[in-house]
């Protein structure tokens, strides 16, 4: 891969390997995400999708390899989760995790872009600007009616949206979304696809998903992972036609 191209990419992974007790979760993984791009990542269980997210967000340190962000300006392997989040990478977990004992509004308020260190947070006040941002977010994720509800009381789909809302509140350059439609009804799945497309107008997005119908719905470039490295890349139709992909994933 040409080193010169790295400067263009928003996210650049090359030669990334991670092993746990001899098991190679990632094996020489290479991946490029361009600014403004939406990418779907598919792969069977154990293909390394979650580990890849862990590496990008600083939760797991790779044994070898480069993980660069924002045109090569930041080496993510040297930074911790909080710093990476502040740089502009937001992550949505596979299992929706919101702050259950906080209200929906407080969940979003915590995620809003603002100084993250201790003392400014202690002194933080509610401002009109903050309220405007919140209103905007509530409009996007359609949870206005649940504003004062404790997040623990939301339905599964609502929690997924709240979490996406929290991602948006951070206003990250790149969103990592892990299986956003798991456990959703068809209607919710469709709406989520629409929501992600809307988000993609202003943010780069990486979606990890099992649901092929959903990936088709997104209509974006697809990367197939297998045993910790990239097996195929292309449109959904191209990868579906790939014999190796059919063997390891679609044809099981």
């Amino acid at each position: 891969m040409n080193a010169g191209r790295t400067t263009d990419a928003l996210l650049y992974l090359d030669g990334v390997s991670v092993s746990f007790d001899g098991f190679k979760a990632l094996n020489q993984l290479a991946l490029l995400i361009a600014p403004g791009e939406m990418r779907a990542i598919v792969g069977p269980n154990g293909a390394g999708k979650t580990t890849m997210m862990d590496v990008i967000t600083g939760k797991t340190r790779p044994d070898t390899g480069d993980v660069l962000f924002d045109g090569g300006r930041h080496d993510l392997t040297r930074l911790d989760e909080a710093t990476i989040a502040e740089l502009g990478i937001g992550r949505k977990f596979q299992k929706p995790t919101v702050f259950e004992s906080h209200t929906v509004e407080d969940n979003l308020r915590l995620a809003l872009k603002a100084p993250r260190s201790v003392f400014p947070t202690l002194a933080a006040r509610r401002t009109a600007e903050e309220k405007a941002r919140l209103d905007e977010l509530f409009a996007t994720v359609k949870l206005d009616a649940q504003r004062r509800t404790q997040a623990g009381g939301l339905s599964h789909g609502q929690k997924q949206w709240l979490e996406i809302g929290m991602l948006l509140a951070q206003d990250p350059a790149l969103l990592l979304v892990d299986e956003p439609v798991a456990g959703m009804t068809d209607a919710e799945t469709f709406e989520t696809a629409e929501l992600l497309k809307r988000i993609n107008r202003t943010h780069s997005v990486v979606v990890v998903e099992h649901d092929m119908a959903f990936v088709r719905e997104l209509g974006v470039k697809v990367t197939v992972l297998h045993e910790g490295s990239v097996l195929a890349e292309g449109t959904i139709d191209q990868v579906s036609a790939d014999q190796r992909v059919v063997e390891v994933y679609l044809g099981r």
Binding site: E81, A85, V98, S117
Partner: peptide, 15 residues
């Protein structure tokens, strides 16, 4: 937030 979901809090950017 830390009490209920420490990892999540970290990924939102709080140290």
């Amino acid at each position: 937030a830390i009490r209920d979901a420490e990892t999540r809090t970290r990924f939102i950017g709080y140290r």
